[in-house]
């Protein structure tokens, strides 16, 4: 099989699908031309992620990565959510095929973008370094 049982479970029964109308932070990464876009909505209270929802246009592993990543940050303090790596998402999914690893990268970056959006909207200072585009492979699509 192409995907692990965990990936298939999160793809077939994705957790946290949807939107949050009065979201405190929204982050989006990807490009429809490349075949995947992820959008993350956060509800934040006292620096804790109270609720998180996602919308994804993409393949099975993109949807599963979004689902898993949102599960991993739900109820967590922002400081902890910011340390979530694509590697941790991929490991929690019991691995992704090599050419699908970028999906976990998108999930990590979508979450970071949403947190950054929350900081920007509320005038909260942060270290730019934390939000620098990661050095790992992102460019699976050059369009």
């Amino acid at each position: 099989m192409l995907y692990s049982e965990v990936v298939m479970d999160h793809f077939m029964n994705p957790r946290n699908v949807g939107t949050i109308a009065d979201a405190d932070g929204v982050g989006e990464v990807g490009n429809a031309k490349c075949g995947d876009i992820m959008r993350i909505y956060l509800k934040i209270k006292n620096d804790v992620i109270e609720d998180v929802k996602f919308e994804t246009f993409g393949c099975g592993s993109a949807i599963a990565s979004s689902s898993m990543a949102t599960e991993m940050i739900k109820g967590k303090p922002l400081s902890q959510a910011l340390t979530l790596t694509n590697k941790a998402v991929a490991e929690a999914l019991d691995g992704l095929p090599a050419h699908k690893l970028h999906c976990s990268v998108l999930a990590e970056e979508a979450i970071k973008n949403a947190i950054k959006n929350y900081y920007d909207k509320n005038g909260i200072e942060y270290n730019e370094e934390q939000f620098k585009e990661s050095a790992h492979e992102h460019g699976h699509c050059d369009i």
Binding site: M8, G35, G58, C59, G60, I63
Partner: peptide, 24 residues
């Protein structure tokens, strides 16, 4: 508005074998 691979996986779950031209 949708991507082909996820379409194929869900159709497979319904017993339908098909194909797509998506990159994935």
């Amino acid at each position: 508005g949708i991507e082909g691979e996820s379409l194929l996986l869900l159709l497979d779950a319904k017993g339908i074998s098909a194909s797509s031209g998506s990159a994935c």
